[in-house]
Design a protein around this nucleic acid. Sequence first.
DNA 1: AAGTTAATGTTAGTTTTTATTACATAAAAA
DNA 2: TTTTTATGTAATAAAAACTAACATTAACTT
Lengths: 131, 131
Amino acid sequence: MSSHIRRTMPLFPMGTVMKLTDLSARQIRYYEQHHLITPDRSEGNRRLYSLNDIDRLLEVKDLLDQGINMAGIKKILLKDDSQAEKLETKESSAKPKKEFTDEELRKLLRKELINAGRFNRSSEVERRFFH
Amino acid sequence: MSSHIRRTMPLFPMGTVMKLTDLSARQIRYYEQHHLITPDRSEGNRRLYSLNDIDRLLEVKDLLDQGINMAGIKKILLKDDSQAEKLETKESSAKPKKEFTDEELRKLLRKELINAGRFNRSSEVERRFFH
DNA sequence: AAGTTAATGTTAGTTTTTATTACATAAAAA
DNA sequence: TTTTTATGTAATAAAAACTAACATTAACTT
């Protein structure tokens, strides 16, 4: 649970993600159009990516490098994800309800980041950049 | 990629650092004025912080929370850091250099003891945040 | 008590970064 | 060949971040 909060916290703006993934802004937004990631937004509408988002982008990049096209990548990464299926069919206006305010989430994340044990499995980006 | 490069890589813009440290932009820039951090800059002059920078900011925050003032924090964090020494000398070259006397140090120490109850965190952010 | 200093807040004006949208293009698929 | 895919590029608007200056408050000094 704590790991989940830590890795889903919307933290990184576009520029950071571009550097971490070596993808262009165009590419990153394109993959979002295809629902492979759904980054949160700042109050001012800037995209904010989580560690999970960055992981996912690196997976997409990997698969593309292997010659797999978007349709295949979707099939692979969004497999039996009913939420994504819905999004795929139609722009769903149903947003996930927020249980926490942004402020509360921030505090939780920081706490988790600070206190989190090392027993959580590493994400791709963590392995690549932070170990 | 070596650990040093990873941890000194200029990655995070101000907003991200504010969230990770719960410090204001004003505070973060103030600590930079005092040479406690020296973030890199983007091509467009935006500050880019590394994991090491964030570590340092959290240390500063910790020490401030313990009632230690900037002078003491500098003494503690910049000790035998030749780069910082150079900067320090350069900036105050026109002014009389204010030394930190034993008396002042004892005062700081007393303050710290009075505010004791917390433990010193000397660990780095990388470990706390991303492992 | 009054005056200084230290640490941080706030505000204003400017530059950089990001978002959106539209059009362009090379390579792959049909 | 024509169409689709994945990505590039350009124009414009808005947010985020910069610098600099002035404001404020709590902590020291005298």
